[in-house]
């Protein structure tokens, strides 16, 4: 009876489809335009980059925000420094630090913790500037209104968060993880105290707000600056997510440059670079855009000593070895 039930095999069609599909698939990457600058998330190798200043930033916000902000800045720096400047996006905080250590990035907008990590890994790296707000930066603990969490009066009240679903930002974020964890620890809350025995790591401040607002997490912690711009833009619904506590101030973001910029770009380049930031003024329309996008009135020098406290906290929490 066998032959009655055998399936017909479509030999001919099978053959040509297979060959065509295979070819199409194999050639697909080859027909793409060769590595588009900017769009490709890959950092070009170290070679032939002698005269190109590569700037980057830890991806603490939505990629679109970063992609709007940094090309503007790159243009302005290129104009004032007289060298080509390119913005190279990176995918996470750790990658930014590693790339800086390797010398794949020349100038990076780091958080306090990643900046300390980067300077420890690249001795001699120079702190260039910070914003006026970075000397005393704040994080906000936020909560979903359904969670029943209410604004708390003092730090001890953070113990209310025990047993709640809680998310940080990135693992290496100063304002989204390091300092909040430090303040939580002072209030007697450890990471195991959260629901599920561990906190979440949302990867960015925008993501933290969205997750807490959605109810996926009952509470979280964000950088005050991102919170405010999110409120202003109307993305955050104040009926769904509220601030429950504002941390004391601590130093945060700053520009960090490679130690060898003077050798590569000429004597005095690092000083000139610093000058470019310190001289950004709100009365210049182009520069005003940049300052506004950075959420700063101006850039100011950053005393290196202020990060000693951050390094100490980093070591206590184990994020710095």
């Amino acid at each position: 009876m066998s032959s009655l039930f055998r399936r017909p095999l479509l030999r001919l069609r099978e053959r040509s489809t297979a060959v065509l599909a295979g070819l199409a698939l194999a050639l697909f990457p080859a027909v793409l335009p060769p590595s588009q600058p900017g769009a490709a998330p890959l950092i070009p190798g170290a070679e032939a980059q002698q005269k190109l200043l590569r700037i980057s930033a830890i991806p603490d916000q939505k990629p679109e925000t970063l992609n709007r902000l940094y090309p503007l800045l790159a243009n302005e720096l290129s104009r004032s420094l007289g060298v080509p400047v390119k913005y190279v996006p990176v995918t996470d905080y750790t990658a930014a630090v590693s790339a800086f250590r390797r010398g794949d990035l020349d100038l990076v907008w780091f958080g306090a913790l990643t900046g300390v990590q980067a300077r420890l890994q690249k001795p001699g790296a120079k702190v260039i500037a910070q914003r006026d707000i970075d000397g005393s930066f704040h994080s906000l603990f936020i909560a979903n209104t359904v969670s029943g969490l209410k604004p708390i009066r003092n730090q001890k009240g953070l113990s209310e968060l025990k047993g709640k679903r809680f998310t940080f930002g990135s693992e290496s974020s100063t304002s989204g993880r390091l300092m909040p964890q430090y303040f939580l620890g002072q209030a007697g809350v450890t990471l195991q105290d959260f629901a599920g025995g561990a906190p979440g790591f949302s990867s960015s401040h925008d993501a933290t707000i969205a997750l807490v607002q959605s109810g996926a997490y009952q509470a979280g912690v964000v950088n005050e600056e991102v919170w405010q711009s999110s409120l202003l833009s109307g993305k955050t619904d104040p009926r769904k997510v509220i601030v429950i506590w504002r941390t004391p101030g601590y130093p945060n973001y700053h520009w960090l440059a490679q130690p060898d910029l003077d050798q590569r770009f000429g004597k005095g380049f690092t000083a000139k670079l610093q000058g470019s930031f310190l001289n950004l003024r709100a009365n210049n329309p182009k520069q005003a855009d940049i300052l506004e996008l950075f959420g700063a009135k101006r850039f100011i020098p950053a005393p290196v000593a202020q990060y000693d406290a951050i390094e100490k906290v980093g070591r206590e929490i184990g994020k710095i070895r």
Binding site: V31, L32, S35, L120
Partner: peptide
Amino acid sequence: LVARALGVNPASLLVWQALPPFL
């Protein structure tokens, strides 16, 4: 062709950088 389109450069693999300093 694919390797060229991706910018894969085998030579660059030879330039090693030490791991982050650590005690």
